[in-house]
Design a protein around this nucleic acid. Structure first.
Lengths: 362, 362
DNA sequence: AATTAGCACTCTAACCAATAGAGTGCTAAT
DNA sequence: ATTAGCACTCTATTGGTTAGAGTGCTAATT
């Protein structure tokens, strides 16, 4: 829609209509637009504009003589060109931040907490995909002897993600032996990217002096057993909160539509896929409307996502999933803010303290 | 219902009716009972027996001239006195066990996996409450120096539950210092019940020789900061799997009933409460039918639970939540079997190896 | 005394018709 | 270009009708 003089009024009508429909969930009539927006033009004029908008594919009628409802295309134009984002007030931000910061210090818990708060504040379903180890590097490793050949490998990354692995050996080991291996691993692997640990380790095996050779072998064996590359490439955490909000939306009174969306939400793999596809593009905040979603089950839904980071590495996406009739003007800024909160919090968790300043209020 | 000669036939009719209703989800007519069970009595006789059963409160009509449906009381009698449990075949058991054992070695993951398998096999919603630290005792403790005054406390229990806590100190500490504290803690606390750690620690503080006093102080500080008793009393893990199965049940075509149950499932606290109340009673497997549930939102639902153990300590309950019309005869043995699997698996995880024998197929 | 055949009765579910009301599109006048 | 006015369309609700499923009751049968 180009923005000529006469199109300005069309835009105004489309904006009003979209806004009213988002509020009321019912087809919008020319009458209602006139009343709510105190327009000085008549309903007949509004109707003829609506007819134009319909021809252009921005709105449709649910039946021949009904009011109009925005199409996906209508929402798209509304979001990209018409809508004014309604940012959060200082108080709201403060309150959200407080709610989020009651979480423990562990990254995993923070992720969960932020997802829940996002869902509660928005009254939509909150979803979140976090790549725990994406491009992270090793901070330190510790081997703890549990007896009977069982060893606990504790692994801490630079970003403060902690992971435990239980290793079963064929024979019991000496604690002192484990300490030596720990030391060896820490000396050689500190700061190494997780994806390169194995390579580096094999490097040591060739290069280093003989007295440590057996240690390196042990270590390689341990990391081999963990299939380290694979885990670090793929391990992610998925949250999904607020199904109850969906139940209250009038669009999901239709049980088939309800089944469609709940079917998606029940399947973590699908959620992972969807969010993953929003991880790559250069844009931080993304909106996918109705049929823009590849998944047919989401053709009645919209997705608003925003990426978050640790330091300057994108490590996840969070967002909201709901009916296409979504309060975009509020929710876009909200989702973005929540991703910022999470970036802050996670970077704050960073154990090297780089991003520590300014989080005293926690 | 006493089991006199004439009541035997009443029982048979009630059993048949219940079974048929569970299968078909539709009110059962005298005709259907006669056909399906090839009874030699006439439909008129069956009807008069049904009238008696209705007087006694075991079945009801949905309307004046409809077939009958079991009441909660009817189900109760069916389960307690009529139904024959249909145990799993050897192949089914084997297949389930295989599915469950693909989980990692960590207890938390096993809990999740078993819940998911239970839900998939039953086509009902699986729920699970696991008290991680119930009456557990300490296996070992390790303090890992992360620099900048940050210390990672890794805590391993006798049952193999592993927990990480991040501690922030005001000032950096020496690694050697942490090792001394670790050693001190391990020496004094190994095998001590988690709930008694604090007490024991304060004991040491008074009794021990002066040279270690400052260590004990440090340790107390650390455990104080963790509010150890509280965490260990209450920390539990809740799973909930299979909402999609509920969507397919005809009883939940009624959107209000659907909302009622989904509302419950969305709220982890409520699930915790419900399952917790099934943790105490002496019975292992429990069935709660319809209005027997305290929660009004579950008045159309039944809950089948079974407790599981680590060694001989009850540590959790798992079960199924679905419509009162549930395939009890299959699901009771299934739920019990899954709790046994979980007990086995968790006891297998037990790091002292007491229950290790016989799990080679994992 | 228990069982059963037969039949009247009741309720549901599906279908149709009628109506009020909301909202439109079109046309002719401004 | 705008608008008043009006005919038209579609929905949603109501009431009526009918077929069918299933019962309860009664009188006959074993």
């Amino acid at each position: 829609m180009d923005v000529s003089a006469s199109n300005k009024r069309r835009s105004r009508i489309l904006g009003a209509l979209t806004h009213l429909y988002i509020q009321s969930a019912r087809p919008v009539s020319s009458q209602l637009i006139k009343e709510e927006y105190s327009l000085s033009i008549s309903t007949a004029t509004i109707r003829s504009i609506m007819a134009e908008l319909e021809d252009a594919g921005y709105i449709v009628q649910t039946h021949t003589s009904s009011g109009r409802v925005p199409t996906d295309r209508g929402y798209r134009f509304y979001i990209d060109s018409l809508m004014k984002q309604k940012g959060l007030s200082f108080e709201e931000k403060q309150s959200i931040k407080n709610d989020c910061c009651t979480a423990s210090e562990l990254a995993e818990d923070t992720i969960n907490k932020v997802s829940r708060v996002l869902s509660e504040v928005s009254n939509e379903v909150g979803i979140n995909l976090f790549f725990k180890f994406k491009e992270d590097s090793l901070k330190c490793v510790e081997l703890i002897n549990l007896g009977s050949g069982k060893v606990l490998l504790v692994l801490v990354t630079e970003s403060g993600i902690i992971r435990n692995y239980l290793i079963k050996l064929d024979e019991p080991v000496e604690t002192s032996e484990l300490h030596r291996i720990s030391n060896f691993l820490n000396t050689h692997l500190q700061g190494v990217a997780l994806s390169e640990i194995k390579q580096k380790l094999y490097g040591c095996l060739e290069r280093d002096n003989l007295s440590l050779l057996y240690l390196a072998r042990e270590a390689c064996g341990i990391f081999d057993a963990l299939e380290v590359d694979n885990i670090f490439e793929n391990e992610c955490q998925i949250c999904q909160e607020g199904i109850n909000y969906i139940l209250k939306k009038p669009e999901f009174n239709d049980i088939d539509k309800l089944r469609a969306i709940l079917g998606v939400l029940e399947d973590k793999q699908t959620i992972e896929k969807i969010l993953k596809s929003n991880l790559r593009p250069y844009k931080k905040v993304m909106v996918t409307i109705g049929k823009e979603n590849k998944l047919e089950n989401l053709h009645n839904c919209s997705l608003v996502t925003s990426k978050y980071k640790i330091g300057n590495r994108v490590v996840g996406v969070l967002g909201l999933l709901g009916p296409t009739r979504m309060a975009y003007s509020k929710l876009l800024p909200l989702v973005e803010y929540m991703s910022d909160i999470l970036s802050e919090a996670l970077s704050g968790h960073s154990l090297d303290g780089r991003y520590e300043e300014g989080y005293d209020e926690a």
